[in-house]
Every structure is written in structure tokens, then in C-alpha cells.
């Protein structure tokens, strides 16, 4: 019983860390226009819409975050193998991983922008300096929280995987959660605030992203502010729930019929979530969207 109470306590702590990590991850990736919104930011200058938005495309979010987290975890693992204190090891590992992230961000921005020479898109050095540092700060929070939760799984809950492998798994999960949950706010709506809500992007409007802010020209910090309000917390809740429920079902039910209990509960949870998701989707379409039934093709 004591074990279960201890396990649930650690699970709650890990869930909280995951929520913070998810929120920071989405804010970071949206400031960098990574993932979903990226294609339009990349396309805009080609359609004549020169902009001041940061564009750091480093693969999709899942592989990118896979790397940052597995790197933080690998470095932390090495520092711990050198008999360094775990807290110090995780902090140092995260710092070095963030350094790599920052370097990748700058090379991605200048590279992509230099290739748009034909369309007159300039490289803005001030964007490079101010956005990269802000994404690095957010990435540090995301990496530190995720590596810490991997360490807790390994050290406190006795997960058999070594730290880097846990970092690999949860890093990709973190990127996927942020990419699937947080990005659509930015990529589908915020870039197209000048279009009818929920209308999608007509081809004629491709690349016509919102480039001007309440005052002056919009840059990615405005997107960070916006994401911190809605998309970030949503991603945090998503990743937090994934991690928490995953561990919760394992800790409580793994003793039932040699582990099958946890698997059955997992399947049940997927079913429950599928029903909830479908209900919300249908409700959302009916309430907000101009989603008319497709008309039969007229002959």
C-alpha cells in the first residue's frame, strides 16, 4: 500500500512537470513557427508578403524535441555516471541541449531566409537575436522538466529503461503533443485572422499571413504571447494528461493478473477518450463552424 501511495505521489509530480513542459514546448515552437504554421511562413515571401516572423524549421516538432530531450537525458546520464549529483547533472545536460537547440535555430533561420533571396526577404539580425534567446529560454524549461520526469520514472518508479531511452520516448511524445494540440491555434487561426473564422485557407489567400500587429509589425514574440495564453496551456494539459494517466494506470493496476490489468484499463481509457473527442468535435462543428454538408455535384 505504501508503495502505491508513494507511486501516486511521484505520478502527480511527474504529471505536473509534464504540464509545464508541454506549455513551454508549444510556446517555444510557435515563436519559431515550427511545425504546422511553418509552411505558410515559408510561403509568404514567395507570394510577395515579406514579413518579420521567425522561421526556424528544424524538422517537425517530434523529431526535434526527440533530439533535445534525448540529448539532455544522455548528457545528464553521462554526468551522473561521472558521479555528479543528479540535480546538477540534469541542469548541465539541459543547458548543453539548449545550446544545441539555439545553434540549430539560428542556422535554420538564416539558411531558409537566405534561400528566399529571389523574393527579397531580408534576414533580420534583431529577430535572430531576440527570438532565438526567447525560444532557448522556453526550450530550457521544456527540456529540464522532461528530463527530470524521465529521471523520476527511472529512479523513483523503477522504470527498467535507461535515462536516454526514456528521453527518446518522452521527447517524441512531447513534440507530438505540442504539435497536435497547440499548433492549430497559430497555424490555422492566428495566421489567418484576416479571413473568416473557421473557413480554412482558400488557395488564393495562401501566404497572406497576418504581418501587422496592434502596433507596428508583428514578430514572433507576439505569437509567443498569444500561445502562452491558449495553445501553450492546452498542450500542457495534453502532455500532462498523457504522462499522468499512463503512469497512473500502470501503478494502480499492474498487479492485477500479471500486468494485464494495466493494459485493459489502457484500452478502456482510449475508448472513453474516443467517445469524448467525437462528442466535442460534433458539438464544435454544430456550434461554430460554417461546415455545410458537401453538395452533390451538379451536372
Amino acid at each position: 500500500m505504501n508503495n502505491i501511495v508513494f507511486g501516486i505521489g511521484i505520478t502527480a509530480l511527474i504529471g505536473a512537470l509534464a504540464a509545464v513542459a508541454g506549455a513551454a514546448e508549444d510556446t517555444e515552437s510557435n515563436i519559431g513557427s515550427q511545425g504546422d504554421p511553418n509552411s505558410q511562413v515559408q510561403l509568404a515571401p514567395q507570394m510577395g508578403y515579406i514579413h518579420r516572423i521567425f522561421n526556424k524549421a528544424i524538422a517537425g516538432e517530434p523529431p526535434a524535441y526527440g533530439l533535445w530531450i534525448v540529448l539532455g537525458a544522455g548528457l545528464a546520464w553521462s554526468f551522473m555516471a561521472m558521479q555528479l549529483n543528479a540535480v546538477l547533472a540534469i541542469v548541465l545536460g539541459s543547458v548543453l541541449a539548449v545550446f544545441v537547440q539555439g545553434v540549430y535555430a539560428t542556422t535554420a533561420y538564416v539558411g531558409r531566409t537566405a534561400s528566399l533571396k529571389k523574393f527579397g526577404q531580408p534576414i533580420y539580425v534583431d529577430i535572430l537575436k531576440s527570438m532565438t534567446t526567447v525560444t532557448m529560454a522556453h526550450a530550457f524549461i521544456a527540456i529540464f522538466c522532461t528530463v527530470t520526469l524521465c529521471y523520476l520514472m527511472n529512479a523513483a518508479l523503477g522504470h527498467p529503461f535507461p535515462l536516454p531511452l526514456l528521453g527518446f520516448v518522452w521527447g517524441i511524445a512531447l513534440g507530438a503533443a505540442g504539435s497536435a494540440t497547440g499548433n492549430p491555434y497559430y497555424g490555422k487561426e492566428r495566421q489567418y485572422q484576416n479571413q473568416k473564422f473557421g473557413a480554412g485557407v482558400p488557395i488564393a489567400q495562401s501566404g497572406n499571413i497576418v504581418r501587422y500587429a496592434e502596433a507596428g509589425e508583428r514578430n514572433s514574440l507576439d505569437n509567443g504571447f498569444f500561445t502562452a495564453k491558449l495553445g501553450g496551456p492546452a498542450s500542457g494539459v495534453c502532455f500532462g494528461l498523457i504522462v499522468f494517466l499512463e503512469l497512473w494506470r500502470t501503478i494502480l493496476f499492474e498487479n492485477i493478473s500479471a500486468g494485464w490489468g494495466a493494459i485493459i484499463i489502457g484500452v478502456l481509457m482510449i475508448l472513453v477518450f474516443t467517445i469524448i473527442d467525437r462528442y466535442i468535435e460534433v458539438w464544435g462543428r454544430k456550434t461554430y463552424g460554417p461546415y455545410a454538408k458537401p453538395e452533390e455535384a451538379k451536372s
Binding site: 523529431p63 526527440g66 533530439l67 534525448v70 540529448l71 537525458a73 544522455g74 546520464w77 553521462s78 555516471a81 529503461f161 535507461p162 535515462l163 536516454p164 531511452l165 528521453g167 527518446f168
Partner: peptide
């Protein structure tokens, strides 16, 4: 120690 996972993604 699964450093190979780190090498993989690096």
C-alpha cells in the same frame, strides 16, 4: 546506457 539512442537522433 542507451547512448546509442542519443547518437541516433543527433
Amino acid at each position: 546506457g542507451s547512448l546509442i539512442a542519443t547518437a541516433f537522433l543527433l
